[in-house]
Structures are given as C-alpha cells and as structure tokens.
Nucleic acid binder design. Structure first.
Length: 648
DNA sequence: AGCACGCCGACT
DNA sequence: GTCGGCGTGCTC
C-alpha cells in the first residue's frame, strides 16, 4: 500500500487570494521542487512549499514533478520576504524566480568552447587597493563605492569576484541595461571565461531558459558561477552565494514597475543577508537614500575621487538660455557651445550633444490662440517628426498628419516648440556642413545600429553624436572632448520629489562621457535655471554638497529617506468613477493615525489605455503601516506601489 | 489571472 | 424559445 503524502504548493500564476493550495502525491517531494498541478481546469506550475498534514477537504493529485533539483532554500526565504515586504502574492514572487517557458522542450545546443579567462594584467591603482581594503575590513553587509566616472570600479568588481571564486563562492553582478553596458559583461567574460553566465533581455526565451538550467546545474554540482545580467538575475539559483554587485546602483531600471513592484537594492540586501554574502553597490552618483544610510553607518562607504587616467573631471560651463544674445546662429545651440563643437571637430576630436526628447520638436503651438496639438487619447502634447511629416504621441503611439491650420481658431501661424534629436541634427548639418554627424535615440536604436555607431565612433568616423538618454550611459569613448547638454531643465521641473536628484545624475553622467582619454574634456550645460543647486553642483561635480542640500530638503518636506512612501493608484472607466472611489478611500485613510494620506490627484498620465487613473500618496515613518494598507486594498481596481521611485 | 456560473436583451 | 453580454466568485 502506497503512502499518500500531502503538500502545500504555491502556484506560480497569480490566483487572487488562493496562494497556497494543498495537493496529494505518492512521491516524496522536497520543498523547492517544481511541480505541475491542476487548478480549476488548468494545469499550472507550482513550487512545493512544505509537506502538510491531511486536510479536511478533498485534494487533487499533483500531476507531475519536473525533473529538476529543488530550488535553493535561500530563494524560498527570499520569495516569502518579497511577498511580505512588497505586499504582493507569493505566486508573483515565485514567478520572478522561474524562467518563462520552463516546461518547453528545448533543442540541445552544444556549448561553444570558452577560454579559461584571466584577470587584467595591469596592477590595481592605490585607490582601488584602498577600496578593496575598506571592503575587506568592513563588517557591514552592504558597501557603497562612490567612484567618479572612469575611476575603475569595474576592476574592483573583478577583484572581489576573483576573491569569491577562490573561496568557491558564486557572484551575482547586476547591471542596469545590458545593451548599453557590453563593456562590463565583456570584462567579466574575459576575466572568468566559462564561469560566467550572462543573461539579458535581448536573449530569446530559449536562451534564457538554457542559462537558468546551467545555473541550476551549478547548484547541484556545487560549482561557483558568476551571473552577470539585469535586475531579474537577482533570482538566479547559484551555489554558495558570496557576493552581489550592483553597478550603477542609482539607475531606475532596478525598480520593477509592473506586477511585483520590487526594488533590486533592498531585495539584494535581503538575499545577501540570507546567504551570508556581501553586497557591493557602485555608482558615480548614488541616490541620496544610500548616502544617508552611509552617513548613519548602516552601510559602509568608500569614495574614489580620482580617475584611473588621473585627468580631473572638468568643470561644466553653465550657459543661461534666458539670455537670447547667446543664440546668434541657432535657436537651440548657444554660440559658445557651437564654437566649441566646431573647434573639436576641426582638431579631429569628437563632440557629444545630449537632448532628452525624441522627434524633431516637442510640440506645436498656435501663436494666435495658444492651442497645443495634443493626442486625442492621452491629452499629451504630440511630437512632430519632420521626416515622416507626422505627429506622434510618445505615450500611445497615436499618429496623425501635421495640420496646416489651427483646429481651434483656424489661425495659420503654427509654431514648433523645442528641439528634439532630429531637429538638432538638422541644425548641425546646416551649421557645420562638413562634420560627420550621427544620431542615437530610441527611434533609431537597434542593437546592430548601436554597435555600428559605437564602432564608427571608436574608429573616428563620426565627429558629432546627437542623442538621448542612450548616449548618457556607459559609452566609453576615449576621444570625446566636448559634451553639450542642450537643455538641462527638462527633468528639473517635473512635479516629483526626485527631480533634482535625477537632474544631477543625468548632468554628471553625460559630463562623464568627456575626458576619458588623454585630455580633459569640456562640458557645456544650457539651462533656464543657471542658479539651481542641482545644476550648479553638477557643473562643479560637487556631489557631497548636492547630497547634503537635497537630504535637508527631503527632511523638511517629508520624503525618503525620512519617511516611507506608498503610491496607491485606482483605475476606472470614467473620471467620475475614479475620483469618487479615490476620494472615498482617501477620506478613510485620512482618519487613520501614524500615516499621512495626500490627494487624491489625477495621475501624471491620467488616461492610459482608455481608463482613468487617480493617485493617493501615503507617507509614514512606520513602514509596516504602509504594507498593511497595501495588503488590504478596498477592491482589485487599486494597485499599490511601496517605495515608489517617483510620484508622477 | 482564467474560467466558470448567472441572470437580462435582440435574434432564428 | 436561444445566443451572448460581462458582473461576481472560486481555484486545493
């Protein structure tokens, strides 16, 4: 007679309130085994949580157990922690830990031969050695390295990884957006060869599945691995985790904005704590939240103030755009920036111009009545694309031909406001007809295009690169002399508590593209707010004074790290339904003690995919009060975002 | 989330 | 008389 065993199983598909279901099976199954089981009339994947006594109700049998070893127990603990800390279903947390298409059969693919790899030959700089000593001496779980761009943080990560591998421990290295950071992946592959498993969003589902299976394999074998990849790699199964590195830890891609709204920093800290590993954060411009934690001694902190090439970071020149006299030959580019670009090009060096909007112009305005051409779905200004002669909504992709007369007053003097990448490119072609100009933004960026632009830049076949966010990050170009920021304010005036911080980070990142080779660069910052502390501090690379001032502002206004935030969003089919539900719930929240509820207000994008979104912001010094609210929302039309990275 | 059941409008 | 709208409710 076979024994019937009972198991608590967490289905990995979202199932409302039913998070842990009981099944029976004749098999003996360890916690962490992945199984298929019937739920309703569907077959779903689930993770065995624990053995269970026979329940009072009838159970269904587990259909089958996948031929995989159990998931390591640190992931089990991490899933429970995430479900609790982010007030989400355990199923979503488990969902983040399994690759898509796990039950699919995959064709065998022979592994290509990878050379064993070796660390870079050149010696560490004294600064790098000092940071390594500080990390070694620290008893803290988490260590922040603040190193200016070009200070050689990657070399420190490689050294720490080598140390972990020597102890037979695995390493997880998180990078923000692997397409923009091929260099760091390359560095790890070169250093550690076959021990490296790189995963990224451009891999196909089958390839990512294979990488995950290799990781599972290494758990069984006890072989240490180096996982390099984006946020999701935080959940890779590994043998004996010894170190987690988060490079460019200030990047917003470390916050997942859908489904399970977790942030990789606290989640990594938790995984490190569970595994007894160290967490190392690196950035030139860490978030002020991390700076505050370092200041109160919750994390240890090293600074690297010198670049590896010993060339000091140049001071940025602030150009006041309110002064119309600065714009002699162009409406967008001051004469000073233009001359610098011209000199750079004629001396055979390169210039980089940063704009943070796509298209040829931000929007069209009627100079008679002030009417702005907006998207009929989103009510956001439409962006004119001169090459297509069309307006495009950058939110929902609505497209329409450019109107010749104002639909409001029939006036014929319609003007384009602002300049996008294409407009700046056209302007440069007109002003500097002999320069070779390339453009890099989301409109033109495929991986192939990016690679080709990058290699042309390195070969000196491009003189001027015009682009958006994409060019601010990670490009290591030794011959860029001149960097220009066409309008530094676009982010500064967003109604959000992180606006100043993001402006500082952006300016210093774009600035960091200059002076990476053998000469200091020159940096020009065009702005309508030349006295704003985020702009002046970024121009002089004065991170400490910016952080101190910003933290003081956050303290006075009641923002993180001095309070915790919860963003509650309601979605409804009409504005009336959204506002009435939001007002009712806000009133209820305002009666509670220990929290402050703000709003409701329309979301930054009030209309999204045909429904109306309204937002309530809740602040508290006591985070569990916020998780409790997030756990007990009045109805399923609400979504909760704990520790939001913006309140737009 | 799916996928049921369930109770009111326009069709062969 | 039936097909079907998507409102509520459950999934071991």
């Amino acid at each position: 007679m076979e024994t019937t065993r009972y198991y608590l199983v967490a289905p990995v598909t979202y199932l409302g309130a039913a998070q842990r279901l009981t099944y029976h099976s004749a098999l003996e199954l360890e916690a962490g085994r992945i199984v298929e089981a019937p739920v309703g009339r569907r077959q779903l994947l689930g993770v065995v949580l624990a053995a269970s006594p026979k329940p009072a109700f009838a159970t269904k049998p587990i259909t089958r157990a996948l031929a995989l070893p159990p998931l390591p127990s640190d992931l089990h603990l991490l899933a429970d922690w995430m479900a609790d800390y982010y007030a989400s279903p355990v199923s979503s947390a488990w969902g983040a830990m399994l690759p898509a298409g796990l039950t699919r059969k995959r064709r065998d693919k022979s592994d290509s031969e990878i050379s064993p790899g070796h660390l870079p030959e050149h010696a560490l700089t004294p600064e790098q050695n000092r940071v390594l000593e500080e990390i070694g001496a620290s008893s803290q779980l988490c260590h922040l390295i603040q190193g200016v761009t070009g200070s050689g943080k990657t070399r420190i990560y490689l050294e720490l990884t080598a140390q972990a591998l020597a102890r037979n421990q695995s390493v997880i290295v998180l990078v923000p957006e692997i397409i923009l950071t091929p260099q760091i992946v390359g560095a790890f592959e070169e250093a550690f060869g076959p021990a490296v498993l790189a995963s990224h969003s451009k891999l196909t589902e089958a390839e990512r599945h294979r990488v995950w299976l290799q990781a599972m394999d290494s758990v069984t074998q006890g072989t240490p691995r180096v996982i390099v990849g984006p946020r999701s790699c935080l959940f890779m199964p590994v043998s004996k985790l010894g170190l987690i590195v988060i490079d460019e830890c200030h990047e917003s891609t470390y916050k997942q904005e859908q489904h399970l709204r977790y942030h990789a920093l606290p989640t990594a800290a938790r995984r490190a704590r569970i595994a007894g590993a160290k967490l190392v954060l690196g950035s030139a411009t860490p978030g002020v939240v991390e700076v505050q934690l370092a200041g109160v001694g919750r994390i240890s902190y090293s600074k690297i103030l010198q670049r590896v090439n010993n060339i000091p970071q140049s001071q940025g020149k602030i150009l006041d755009m309110r002064n119309k006299d600065l714009f002699t030959s162009s409406k967008f580019i001051t004469q000073q920036l233009l001359s610098a670009v011209e000199d750079t090009v004629s001396s055979g060096r390169q210039a980089l111009l940063y704009i943070n909007r796509r298209g040829s112009a931000s929007s069209q305005v009627c100079s008679d009545c002030g009417h702005v051409t907006t998207c009929p779905n989103c009510l956001l200004p439409l962006t004119f694309h001169a090459d297509l002669l069309r307006f495009i909504c950058h939110h929902c992709n609505f497209r329409m031909p450019a109107p010749a007369i104002c639909p409001e007053c029939n006036g014929s003097d319609l003007r384009l406001l602002g300049g996008g990448t294409k407009r700046i490119e056209d302007e440069l072609v007109r002003l500097l007809p002999h320069a070779r100009i390339a453009r890099l933004d989301r409109d033109s960026a495929t991986l192939a295009h990016l690679k080709s632009v990058y290699s042309q830049l390195r070969q000196g076949k491009i003189d001027i690169l015009v682009g958006t966010q994409m060019i601010a990050k990670g490009l290591d170009l030794p011959t860029v002399d001149t960097v220009g920021i066409i309008n530094a304010d676009t982010m500064l005036h967003l109604p959000d508590f992180t606006a100043a911080e993001r402006t500082y980070q952006l300016i210093s990142q774009v600035s960091g593209r200059a002076g990476r080779g053998d000469r200091p660069g020159q940096i020009f910052i065009q702005t309508y707010s030349p006295d704003h502390p985020a702009i002046t501090a970024a121009a002089s690379s004065d991170f400490d004074s910016f952080a101190a001032r910003e933290l003081e502002a956050r303290r006075l206004l009641g923002y993180p790290p001095y309070v915790y935030l919860l963003k509650l969003t309601i979605r409804a089919s009409s504005r009336e339904a959204a506002t009435s539900a939001a007002e009712k719930y806000a009133a209820a929240l305002k009666r509670r003690t220990g929290i402050v509820a703000i709003g409701p207000a329309p979301a930054f994008l009030e209309i999204q995919r045909g429904s109306y979104h309204w937002v309530i912001t809740v602040k508290s010094k006591n985070r569990p009060l916020l998780t409790e609210i997030a756990h007990s929302l009045p109805d399923p039309h609400w979504t909760a975002d704990l520790d939001p990275i913006n309140l737009l």
